[in-house]
Nucleic acid binder design. Structure first.
Length: 256
DNA sequence: ATGCCTTATTTCATAAGA
């Protein structure tokens, strides 16, 4: 199975690039984040022409997640029980069973600043996600939770750790929340960069950050043990971050 | 301290992103 995850920063704005990328990369299952559209405006017909079934979860201009699959898309769940909201739950999680693998696409709240209520919400949401994953893993199926976690797991995952001290994405509570999720029995599948040493997945649009490789690794693939043991390769598709009209995130592609 | 860039929107200005 070829599994990918990509924060597309609007699936409609990115549609031509997404279709090209699907055609050349040929993933079996794709986790999308920041689709920024409702389920009924998701371009499902366009991806269906390439052989993909769609399950989307969205509610307008912000957030939004989706799953595309050409190997089955069953037992779809949107959100999770007792999902924290701001104040109401947002479209940040969707899961499905694809060829026997339980796949989650998640878009973790940004948090803004550590003194913001959005930060408290972020930590609560990650704790809630942990409980939902624990419940889903009780079935014993292989599982992968993929997406934009908005947390850089280590200092090596940001281009300048000194610059990030005191900022969201690197604080100990956020990193602990990720560690608590891994402690369920999930393994960080670290993809290799196509160029350079840094496994970054996000670069700000501004100030030529991508070209200077001033980025962050905040998009993650966490897989249960047996599945992680079957990883043949994992890479960050930096080509998709180049050129005209890219997302600010690059896709991660994992072959099992 | 802020913009740098890009998105969507009851748009020609704002909120949000990370």
């Amino acid at each position: 199975m070829r599994l990918a995850t990509w924060n597309v920063n609007s699936v409609r704005a990115r549609l031509p690039r997404l279709l090209d990328w699907l055609t050349t990369t040929k993933p079996d299952v794709v986790c999308l984040q920041e689709t920024k559209c409702s389920a009924d405006t998701f371009p499902a017909a366009e991806v269906a022409e390439l052989g993909y079934a769609t399950a989307a979860h969205g509610a307008g201009q912000w957030n939004g997640v989706a799953l595309l699959s050409r190997v089955g898309l069953d037992e779809v769940t949107r959100g999770f029980p007792e999902e924290p909201g701001f104040p109401d739950p947002e479209a940040r999680a969707i899961a499905a069973t694809c060829d026997g693998v339980r796949v989650w696409s998640v878009y973790v709240p940004n948090g803004r600043t550590p003194d913001s209520p959005h930060y408290t919400y972020k930590l609560a949401w990650l704790a809630g996600l942990r409980e939902a994953l624990a419940a889903d893993m009780a079935t014993g199926r292989p599982l992968a939770v993929c997406g934009d976690f908005n947390v850089a797991p280590t200092d090596a995952d940001v281009w300048d750790p000194a610059l990030f001290i005191g900022s969201t994405h690197v604080t100990p509570p956020e990193r602990q929340a990720l560690a608590d999720i891994r402690a369920l029995g999930l393994n960080d599948v670290v993809p290799r960069p196509m160029k350079g040493d840094n496994p970054f997945t996000y670069w700000d649009y501004r100030a030529g950050m991508f070209h200077q490789d001033k980025g962050m690794r905040i998009d993650l693939v966490y897989a249960t043990g047996e599945l992680a043991g079957q990883v043949r390769s994992a890479y960050i598709d930096r080509e998709a971050r180049k050129g005209k009209g890219p997302s600010d995130h690059a896709p991660i592609v994992v072959d099992f």
